[in-house]
């Protein structure tokens, strides 16, 4: 029993220590002066790697999720004879929940794991140490551009996901199942509020972006530089980031939509 309590205490200390190191990493990476010109180009490179290269998976998943929502929503709403509310249902679920959350989960799997592996490999091949010896701070040179690229890319991906999803819902609802196009879009416009729904969704997405990218770069920077260590850290990135997204989603939803 005593041993168990002791173990609990020890693991708590390790967790708190991890959190402290992760915060320090983030702070050192993004605070302080940096050569804006050089780093801006690096950030653009990284936006390409984490954003542009994630486009296909985001568009395809967005389309299918929108179509599934259209199909499922139609069968349920048709029971109450209110098919015309389909647009409202599809758009609200996408803007408020599914858009930011699913995009963040896909992003953690596609881009987060790649970030961890890439930084981990740079550590394992001594590229980070080599940067240090050349007199360049790897936090600012390697970590900061990747962090910013993630924070910029994820909200954009999320917007694309939601838009494609709405179109997918319309495709199934209007073109295939015969919901009236006018009432589909009118209902959607009447119920979706830009500031309350779309904008709050964007805020969620920004929060998820910070959390996911932070976890990914920290896991990469802090891993044990062996092939086993990289494999483990990559897995941890996906697991931790996904859990963190779902957990933060609950709290953000409670704060944003709880009172209405």
């Amino acid at each position: 029993m005593i041993e168990r309590i002791r173990g609990l205490g020890r693991s708590t200390l390790v967790q708190v220590g991890d959190l402290g190191r992760a915060s320090l990493l983030l702070f050192q990476a993004i605070a302080g002066r940096s050569q804006v010109g050089v780093h801006w180009r690096l950030t653009i490179d990284q936006i390409y790697a984490v954003g542009v290269l994630s486009l296909s998976i985001i568009i395809v998943s967005g389309l299918f999720i929108g179509m599934v929502l259209g199909l499922q929503g139609y069968t349920i709403l048709a029971d109450y004879g209110s098919e015309q509310a389909l647009g409202q249902m599809v758009a609200l679920s996408l803007t408020r929940e599914l858009g930011p959350v699913v995009t963040a989960l896909l992003f953690a799997g596609r881009a987060g794991s790649a970030l961890t592996a890439e930084i981990g490999l740079m550590k394992a091949t001594e590229q980070l140490a080599s940067l240090e010896m050349i007199g360049v701070d790897p936090l600012r040179r390697v970590v900061a551009p990747r962090f910013w690229a993630g924070v910029i890319s994820l909200p954009i991906l999320s917007l694309i996901f939601v838009s494609v999803g709405c179109l997918g819902g319309a495709l199934v609802g209007v073109s295939w199942l015969g919901v009236d196009a006018g009432s589909f879009w009118a209902n959607m416009q009447a119920s979706v509020d830009f500031w309350n729904d779309v904008f709050n969704g964007i805020i969620k997405s920004v929060v998820f972006a910070v959390v996911v990218t932070w976890i990914a770069v920290y896991q990469g920077y802090d891993l044990v530089p062996t092939s086993e260590g990289i494999a483990r850290a990559t897995t941890r990135t996906v697991v931790y980031a996904s859990l963190a997204v779902l957990c933060f989603d609950f709290f953000l939803t409670a704060v944003m939509f709880g009172e209405v």
């Binding site: 954009i156 917007l159 694309i160 939601v162 838009s163 416009q189 009447a190 509020d193 779309v198």
Partner: peptide, 14 residues
């Protein structure tokens, strides 16, 4: 991304 934002603002949330 900007086009999608415009789409969401104009078409989806009116």
């Amino acid at each position: 991304g900007a086009i999608c934002l415009a789409f969401l603002a104009l078409e989806v949330s009116g």
